[in-house]
């Protein structure tokens, strides 16, 4: 289980979301909160760096990164095999 604050820490460094990160709930849509398409690419890169993973193409869609909950399940789907 990836702690929410690890994901929030990454969001806190995202140009689009940094000022709002404390007000974003688990299921708030990040794109509605102002995450731009470039911001979402920056977020993907930051998550890849922070968790030492690479998102495969089939996960590089809007839904995978639309909420903190979805980001966690996207990350867990990649980290699970090594955890098992």
């Amino acid at each position: 289980m990836i702690p929410a604050h690890d994901i929030r820490e990454v969001l806190g460094h995202n140009g689009d979301l940094a000022p709002l990160v404390d007000q974003i709930s688990e299921d708030d849509n990040l794109f509605d909160k102002g995450l731009s398409s470039f911001g979402s690419v920056q977020l993907m890169l930051a998550l890849e760096q922070r968790f030492d993973i690479e998102f495969p193409d089939h996960l590089l869609n809007r839904r995978s990164f639309s909420t903190i909950r979805n980001i966690r399940s996207t990350l867990e789907s990649l980290l699970e095999p090594s955890a098992a």
Binding site: V41, D57, H58, L60, N61, R62, R63, S64
Partner: peptide, 9 residues
């Protein structure tokens, strides 16, 4: 398929 249509690829 909305996810696929909106995907980066």
């Amino acid at each position: 398929d909305a996810d696929a249509l909106g995907s980066i690829g």
